[in-house]
Write a protein that binds this DNA or RNA. Sequence first.
DNA 1: AATGAACGTTGCATATCTTGCAACGCATGC
DNA 2: GCATGCGTTGCAAGATATGCAACGTTCATT
Lengths: 254, 254
Amino acid sequence: MSQTVDRALSILPLLAEGPADLGQVAERLGVHKSTALRLLRTLHEHGLVFRQSDQRYRLGARLFALAQEAVENLDVREIAHPHLLALNEKCGHTVHLAVYEEQEVLYIDKVESRYPVRMYSRIGKPVAITVAAVAKLLLSDFPEAERRAFAEKLDYPAYTSRSTPNAAAFLRELAQVREQGWATDLGGHEESINCVGAPIRGADGRVVAAMSMSAPNVVVTAEELLKLLPLVRRTAEAISREYSGAVPDARNAL
Amino acid sequence: MSQTVDRALSILPLLAEGPADLGQVAERLGVHKSTALRLLRTLHEHGLVFRQSDQRYRLGARLFALAQEAVENLDVREIAHPHLLALNEKCGHTVHLAVYEEQEVLYIDKVESRYPVRMYSRIGKPVAITVAAVAKLLLSDFPEAERRAFAEKLDYPAYTSRSTPNAAAFLRELAQVREQGWATDLGGHEESINCVGAPIRGADGRVVAAMSMSAPNVVVTAEELLKLLPLVRRTAEAISREYSGAVPDARNAL
DNA sequence: AATGAACGTTGCATATCTTGCAACGCATGC
DNA sequence: GCATGCGTTGCAAGATATGCAACGTTCATT
């Protein structure tokens, strides 16, 4: 829509791959070096790009700060956080909070397991959308037409033998999740890791976020984790109530 | 340098403060609504900006992804990470890795304490530059003139009674840190939290990063934490060696 | 139900701002 | 000492962003 800005912003993903010098940037943008220079300078002034000692350009620090502030201003996150902490205190497993945004589901909060075995995930990272419990919860709330259209467009990587294999299976699972009001991921992403999750709803009943509890097999079996489902659901409901405008209630904080 | 891009990028920090609608953005940019609209659209196409359900604009998901990739491509980080993990395994406290960039010191990696009491910090977040052990380490390596110039420009917030009070005190401390090759922050940022840190050097001896170990008083006293200093320094040296091109050595991995 | 305000959106003519070019300075290597 | 490669600058040409005015919608008000 705006050529100049478009070009400038195209530099960012390019630099995300690794540092590059002026010539490389210009070439990949398909513009003259002087043009690339001026764009980089502007990005630099705003701190989005940084010039390292060997003169090459990198993504800059301001990017972190922005991402940071963005995540901290999410009101669901703010409300949910103490609840997630409380849940973690109670059973010690990793707790995640995720939202759907622009074709992706991404973690916006995480409380680490107290057990030494940790799973890899990071706030801001898009989740494996076809298998993650939180993704199923968020997508299950879409109107059916959108759900189907979306499911068709996805890839279904076979992370493990229990990964969702295709759109049909995914849609079936979404229907079930919608029905029952909770979701699982039993070894669908990593063979040895199970999750159970529950939706967080706004005042209008729409799912605005989803939370999950994850634990590796070596710590608790899938059955044991499922026993904790009521606790997860109660937590999600407490967050939902508070998010919908109810006063924080100490009795529900658990 | 490029007006259009400049305006577009100015939108980002603005939205970092919280969601805003088109009119607000246009007003704060000092441009016509239609101009703001087109800029926002371009930002949107690149995923840096996101339109939430109430039509207002927010910072978008791509921002996280970019920040993520940026941090993961840092080669110091990649090399250091296993060492940090090993150190954490060994003594259980929070371990940080930080670099200096564009007038700021920021955490680029963190391994959480295994103790229940956690400190607040986040990857990408700028540190309290006048008190943090990692900041002292990174700045102590500056040439003296720059060090002084930089120290003069800083603010010296009194986080606690033991915070660095002014430039003179800071410069004295930097000189000492430079001399001894390690640094501490004993309650300078938060009354009850102590840190000890050591520098990571490149092949040319310059400090490229700094690491620290932090623990609250309630877990270990400052004296006990200082006893762990040799361990921290050995870890930093192992990282330095590997970063300078030495082959990873299992005997140093500790 | 009707009116009005507020907001986002579009097409268009103007002129501002970006662009590519060519030339320069500087370092590095042959 | 010369050549090559890189980043940088000033300038003229014209592509491109801009503000305006008008339209469509939604929402609150009377």
